[in-house]
Design a protein around this nucleic acid. Sequence first.
DNA 1: TGTTATGGCTAATGACTGTTAGCCGAGGAG
DNA 2: CTCCTCGGCTAACAGTCATTAGCCATAACA
Lengths: 206, 206
Amino acid sequence: MKVERQHRPGGVPGALPGDRAAAIRVAALRLFATQGYRATTMADIGAAVGIRGPSIYKHVSGKQVLLAEIMLGTMDALIAAHAEATASAVSVGDQLRRAVEAHVRYHARHQLEAFVGNREIASLDQPDRDRVLRRRSTYERGFRKLIERGVSEGAFDVRSARLASYSILDMGMGVANWFHDGGEFSVDQLAYQYGDLALRVVGCQA
Amino acid sequence: MKVERQHRPGGVPGALPGDRAAAIRVAALRLFATQGYRATTMADIGAAVGIRGPSIYKHVSGKQVLLAEIMLGTMDALIAAHAEATASAVSVGDQLRRAVEAHVRYHARHQLEAFVGNREIASLDQPDRDRVLRRRSTYERGFRKLIERGVSEGAFDVRSARLASYSILDMGMGVANWFHDGGEFSVDQLAYQYGDLALRVVGCQA
DNA sequence: TGTTATGGCTAATGACTGTTAGCCGAGGAG
DNA sequence: CTCCTCGGCTAACAGTCATTAGCCATAACA
């Protein structure tokens, strides 16, 4: 998997704007996920896209913003997926199922983002760290309110909505740790089965 | 929370053997958990016990072994707790409940170990990393076999024992991320409730 | 009282790293 | 044909850090 180094010292001005920048973001994501943020050097990221470390600064303003983009983007994507999922169903049971499916789907399809997002919170400087944590709270609250509503409607039966929401979120996040394409389950199968498990957790007779 | 620096340059030979070493291990654990392994310096660890960075080498052979001890010790403790828990019950349902309770108890009582154990796998050099990963597999297999047995005995009802074991383990591990003493639940209450949730996940009518 | 091991300390080593400065070739614009 | 911008490059800067070397005061012990 050797990437061709730019032998021509000059760049290619008009060719594919933002292409390198995107490649850098992808490489950074992969390296942050496999080696960790602090263990990944700018030279590593550069090598992954065929340039030297310092050249990265022609496309991205620094290492820290690469991490911030990943983590903020991940949380925004999750929150958006949750909103879309809950809007597409009427009963609380279906809403929870859809929300869990979206949650699991994201963690299976964007394993690296999820992995980095969960592991590198301490590597993120302020104020971005608090921004990410706030979004995390918002996301969790969405599930908790859903469960509380299900309980008050008599559809769910749990001792603690908070415990249930944590459990459901945590088991879905775990998918990012072991899922790989071509395994026992497809993403869709996985999402459906975790939907089942979540409904069992909240004691929903479906 | 200022720690008194040793003003006397000389040591105290006979006094409390291994005390400093233990304090260093505790401090390292706390710092690894809060800042991450790579972000924690030997000077940080030293400051936490009132000495300078280099003095740590009088008690411990290096930073990497501090991490290895934490991670190997964590997995050994989990495996031992699992063995003890499953030995203390007869029915599969009870065995699973006890195993989950032990799992949750460990993650609530040893949050820092669990946190580091889950986050710093990539920071661990070989061959210790593989050692830890092997122990993790062993631990997961214990839960999976238990669930498979429950299914074959007709006590449990799951589509995939692997999915169920991952789910149950992941939701228990999540406890380490948010639990704190004096919160809504005690460790015992938490363990019991997660036992309930796990039995729901495997469809056990208890 | 003299000796020695312990466990502090400072200084130094050697390596690594994010980022900046400044150079330069190529291709597009005029 | 000339000029300018883009996007490479190398060199340099300004740290940081794990670890080693070597010094020395204390306290236990003979």
